[in-house]
Amino acid sequence: MTTFAERLKHAMDERHMSQSDLSAKSGISKAAISQYLSGKNQPKKDKIDRLADVLGASPDFLMGYGVEETEGGLINPEKITVREAAKILGKSDQFIRIGLQRGILPFGWAVKTSSQWSYYINPVLFSQYLSTNIEADNEENQLKDNLQSGNMVPVEQAAQLMGKTPQFIRLGLQQRVLPIGAAVKVNATTWDYYISPKLFTDFTGIEVQISSKNQR
């Protein structure tokens, strides 16, 4: 493979991706991609980076800067498979596939070609997602520790101090827009609300007396 067009076609074949799929995912017009594949035109660096990201390839590979194809035909040795992602997250392969198909999981995408789905997981986005989940788990564990020790702020008290309604606090916690605690759904109609005194003070600047009574 000596030309950009050949390397681009190879990368598309590896991912079972059509011109239309690549255009939709990269935001580059189908006409432009057609010109790249025919060798009539070659994209600028920013578009090469976008194509590489969508295809799970190295930009250096597409530009022919001495990057060789890896064993098994994979052009990006850092590509994460569905099975690897599932194992790391402690989920099933099906959970990952459905999440990518529906656009729920923010670390990759799924492309349907005829009757087959192709899945791509971006290593950088996956790492960011994993880090976010770890931080969220740590915060949740901290909140649980506070709950067990009785160090929680009641919803009504938080609402009064902030000059808001209790409903405002509950919805803010449910939708994760208030960084003062967490809302945990117990069943179809019931939520538990945990408000950390430290997070509340950090967010509002208001010192609060710790209450041992948590609210639902």
Rank of each mutant, 00 (worst) to 15 (best):
N214T: 12
N138W: 01
L100G: 03
L55Q: 08
L143G: 15
P106E: 01
I210D: 04
D137N: 11
E140W: 04
I169G: 08
N41L: 01
Q116K: 13
S26R: 10
A182G: 06
I206K: 15
T165F: 06
A52V: 11
K9P: 00
E14A: 14
A31E: 14
I134E: 14
K44V: 11
K40L: 02
G163P: 00
R176C: 09
A188G: 06
I88N: 07
Q167R: 10
D49F: 06
D60K: 14
A31H: 08
K144G: 00
Q19I: 14
G73R: 01
E140H: 14
L147C: 03
T113Q: 12
M12W: 09
A5P: 00
V111L: 08
L62Q: 04
S118M: 04
T3F: 01
N151Q: 14
L22H: 07
I96H: 03
F200Q: 05
K164E: 05
M152T: 15
D192S: 13
G66V: 11
V186P: 01
G108H: 07
M152K: 02
G181Q: 09
T165D: 08
P123W: 02
K30F: 02
Q35N: 14
R102A: 12
I206A: 01
F126Y: 10
T204H: 09
Q35F: 00
I134V: 12
V208T: 07
F61Y: 15
T81A: 05
S34I: 01
E139A: 13
S115P: 04
F168D: 06
V186R: 11
E6M: 10
A11E: 04
I88F: 06
